[in-house]
Design a protein around this nucleic acid. Structure first.
Length: 876
DNA sequence: CGATCCCGCCACATT
DNA sequence: AATGTGGCGGGATCG
């Protein structure tokens, strides 16, 4: 039978077994073997390992799976028959093989030979660790799969993990681009930072207390961490961000998991992470119940990831023996110190500035709350406790806040928090509108820190500076109250001077510029890989979720600002893949015209790039490259700032922004959803000045220049930010109005109120409390937002919005939406539930509502990626 | 028998 | 509808 089959089918079985066996087992057929080797030679050989690698490959190729026998045949025949491929021969061979096979079968390729780790090594062997920047290697999944002799599914497993570390990026269907390890350290640094935010405390705790706590935590963790899962995770990862569309998908959990897993190592002091702990931490479930099955599945996935990471030489398997016994674990053997230094952020404003940027405005042109690296918060879950870094810092800065001291406390807090959160969530659920949340004191409960109410995003603009420097929370409350006008009305009351932004707590970045201020430019992170998908949506979702939950929890965990890898940047820039970004697709330069609003003088260009924000878009690329390593460090910022000045000069790029400065007073805001390239960040830009700034190149992103503040969403997660445009002071005022300024913006964040939408208004302030605001209804068009409107995106132009809401000042918000962005919308908010997360953006947002309000959002699927939307939700 | 984890079904997304 | 992606978990192997 076999024989017959062979003639046709034969390839399969025989092949599988044979090759392998032959090579190995019997010395026997050396003669024949020779043949195979030959063939192998041709191919790129992945296997560094052994001479037999080739054989293995063949074997694998032959592997049963091969769907295409034909292909197999092709492969083999040549090999086998290098001499001849005649069938007859083949038969003979086959025969032979068979015999061999039997033997072999016994030995048959053991599982190990087919392990993912081995496969990954083969895969990696095909590409240079440090490819020349010039050459871009594209990877065809089908091709690789056939070469390595595995099903494509397996390749996905590998690629997804590699992608999480930015070693590759998805370019298109079936196509990935190999980047190599150039950016690995940057990525790791970013992950480390993000990890510290998310898991730092937890890990510390765990490691310190060991199991006891762990276990406790185990349960709690989920909760505490839940957010993370919610979405944001590391978006940074996604440089590409693929459009929103991507997001909707179930996010690639493998990718996210991979990043989280790596984070755990980076955060861990011992650099050893046991599988069970990792699984517990990574289990998203908010739910308490941890099913065993779920745990099991998680562990399985972790093995998959671990295999790839092991192949990369980043971790190795070890065992830790604990009381309970020996537990499987992995030890990080990769780089621990990254060139960059994370510290910078810390160093950044060690002092009490709540928001580094804000105060420092002087220095930093822009204020970025959190640069890519910086964290505002530790972990989302912590948010409640510590709203943002700034806050935290404050706290810390305060007389004593030794971290460690606090740990225990922290832990307990966390635990409590979790409980509270849960509760809250439930409540929230009930409560229709966000408002309740906002207004509700409950939040306070959560606040471990002094963030009192934090709740609301609303800030008074009145306050001269919104900045919340310190007490973010504290101030906020007042503000909000007074302001009280609701947004609902459709407009919030705006005060002439003030501008506000309300965001959903979810992460976002806001940029606000005083009228005169300078602008900040930022690049939004775009996904590096354009091709890829993105996680953005997630972020959005997360946001929503958060909101629901009362945001406290929500954390978006991960937002990383990612790195900016130079390469990545390039790509982004070049490609413009970036979906989200406002960035001009290619280079800013090119898009001079992009700028849309002409009038706005002050506009600066905004690029969204992968992770950075570049101030000057044009410049950005360059800068980025230079700095690649530096994320948004202060340094970077400074540079940028410097650049700015220069930038302006550099017209080409700037073109867009060009002048900026002069614009009338209208503030404009650009809101970018996280999904967009930024992973978790939302950006808001207010350009008072330069409304025009926002221009979008058609699909591409326009660059905008605006003074802004960037906050990591995660950090913010719960915090709403408010900026008052007016405030800004141009730090570096460039005479020409160039960007220089990064004026500091003021903004306040309320930590908790994640739910609360953020409002940005030029003048007016919204009061969160006012219940109205919260109204979620998407449907209520009117109110939505006072401000935010969607704008969007069109291909090109910038859209300006007047904010309906805004009284007096028109405000424009641009939101980049990614597909997912929708979540932010009011509706989305409501829905916010888990479900929501998973839903596609579209589902979340209500288009209708939006449309009504704005009239247009561009929300098409297609454009999803690049759209800018305005979030009107504010109220909600 | 627990640790690993291959394999591939199948749902969902994209084309 | 076809094809690309990737979640997921049964159950085979390994140790």
């Amino acid at each position: 039978e076999n024989i017959f089959d062979r003639s046709r089918m034969a390839p399969k079985t025989p092949i599988k077994n044979e090759p392998v066996d032959l090579s190995k087992q019997k010395g026997c057929t050396p003669e024949r073997n020779p043949i195979t080797p030959v063939k192998l030679v041709d191919r790129p050989q992945p296997d560094p390992w052994t001479p037999t690698a080739n054989l293995k490959m063949l074997v694998s190729a032959a592997s049963p799976d091969m769907r295409d026998r034909e292909k197999k045949k092709e492969l083999f025949r040549p090999i086998e028959n290098s001499e001849q491929s005649d069938t007859p021969d083949s038969l003979q061979y086959d025969m032979v093989d068979d015999s061999t096979v039997d033997e072999f079968e016994k030995q048959r390729p053991s599982r190990k030979q087919k392990s993912l780790g081995l496969l990954c090594q083969k895969f990696l062997a095909r590409y240079p660790s440090y490819p020349l920047s010039t050459e871009k290697t594209t990877i065809s999944l089908d091709e690789v799969a056939s070469i390595l002799g595995v099903e494509r599914r397996r390749i996905y497993d590998i690629v997804n993990v590699l992608e999480s570390l930015h070693l590759v990026s998805r370019v298109a269907k079936n196509q990935y681009c190999w980047h190599g390890r150039h950016n690995l350290s940057q990525t790791l640094r970013t992950l480390q930072e993000a990890g510290e935010m998310q898991y730092g405390e937890l890990m510390t705790f765990i490691q310190h207390k060991e199991q006891d706590l762990e276990y406790k935590f185990g349960e709690r963790k989920r909760e505490t961490i839940p957010d993370s899962q919610e979405r944001p995770l590391l978006d940074f990862s996604e440089p590409d961000c693929t459009s929103a569309s991507a997001n909707s998908r179930k996010d690639k959990s493998l990718r996210i998991m991979s990043q989280k897993f790596v984070m755990l190592f980076l955060v861990s002091k011992t650099k050893i992470v046991t599988l069970d702990i990792a699984a517990k931490i990574l289990i998203e479930e908010t739910q308490d119940t941890v099913d065993h099955s779920k745990f099991k599945t998680k562990v399985r996935r972790l093995y998959d990831i671990a295999n790839v990471l092991t192949s990369l030489g980043l971790i190795k398997k070890v065992h830790v023996t604990e009381e309970r016994g020996r537990k499987p674990a992995f030890k990080w053997i990769g780089p621990v110190e990254f060139s960059g230094k994370t510290d910078e952020s810390r160093g950044h404003s060690p002092t009490s500035d709540p928001l580094p940027g804000a105060r420092r405005g002087t220095h930093a042109p822009y204020q970025i709350c959190a640069t890519g690296n910086q964290k505002f918060t530790r972990h989302t879950s912590f948010n409640s406790a510590q709203p943002c870094e700034g806050t935290r810092r404050k706290v810390n800065s305060e007389p004593n806040s030794p971290r460690q001291e606090r740990q225990d406390e922290y832990c307990s807090k966390m635990i409590n928090l979790a409980a509270v959160c849960r509760q809250k969530i439930e409540e929230d659920t009930r409560s229709p509108s966000i408002t309740s949340l906002l207004s509700v004191p409950r939040d306070s409960d959560f606040c471990v820190n002094p963030l009192p109410q934090a709740v609301f995003p609303v800030v008074h603009t009145d306050v001269p500076s919104l900045s919340l420097p310190n007490g973010i929370g504290s101030q906020a409350p007042h503000l909000s109250t007074p302001a009280a006008s609701k947004t609902e009305n459709g407009k919030a009351t705006l005060f002439p001077n003030q501008s506000f932004l309300c965001f959903p707590s979810s992460s976002l970045i806001m940029l606000c510029g005083g009228p005169q201020e300078n602008n900040l430019r930022e690049t939004l992170p775009t996904s590096r890989d354009m091709g890829k998908r993105n996680a953005e949506a997630q972020a959005a979702v997360a946001a929503t979720v958060c909101q629901k939950r009362s945001s406290h929890k929500c954390t978006s965990p991960s937002l990383l600002v990612d790195d900016e890898e130079p390469a990545a940047k390039k790509q982004t820039v070049e490609q413009s893949d970036v979906p989200l970004s406002l960035v001009v697709p290619k280079k800013p330069f090119e898009s001079p015209k992009a700028e849309s609003t002409p009038g706005s003088g002050s506009a600066s260009a905004l690029h969204l790039e992968g992770f950075h924000l570049d101030l000057a878009s044009p410049v950005a690329p360059e800068a980025a490259d230079k700095e690649s390593t530096m994320p948004l460090d202060s340094q970077g910022q400074e540079k940028w700032s410097q650049n700015k000045g220069p930038d302006e000069p550099s017209p080409g790029k700037e073109h867009i922004s060009k002048e900026n400065a002069n614009q009338p007073f209208l503030p404009q805001y650009l809101y970018v959803q996280p999904t967009a390239g930024l992973s978790s960040f939302n950006f808001l830009f207010s350009a008072n000045q330069a409304p025009g700034a926002v221009s979008l190149a058609a699909s591409q992103l326009p660059s905008l220049s605006v003074p802004c503040v960037v906050v990591p969403s995660a950090a913010l997660a719960s915090f709403p930010l408010v900026c008052s445009p007016t405030v800004t002071s141009p730090v570096s005022p460039v005479p020409d109005g160039s960007f220089s300024a990064a004026t500091p913006m003021n903004f306040s964040m309320s930590s908790l109120a994640s739910t609360a939408p953020v409002f940005i208004g030029t003048t007016a302030v919204v009061t969160p409390k006012v219940s109205p605001v919260p109204s979620v209804d998407p449907q209520q068009p009117a109110h939505p937002p006072p401000h935010l409107s969607p704008v969007l995106a069109r291909s090109c132009g910038a859209i300006k919005l007047d904010s309906p809401v805004c009284v007096g000042h028109p405000v424009t918000l641009l939101k980049l939406q990614q597909p997912s962005s929708a979540p932010l919308t009011p509706k989305s908010i409501r829905p916010a539930r888990h479900e929501a997360f998973f839903k596609t953006p579209g589902s979340l947002g209500d288009p209708v509502a939006w449309k009504k309000n704005e009239g247009n959002q561009t929300r098409n699927g297609s454009s999803v990626q690049r759209r800018l939307e305005i979030s009107s939700t504010s109220p909600d």
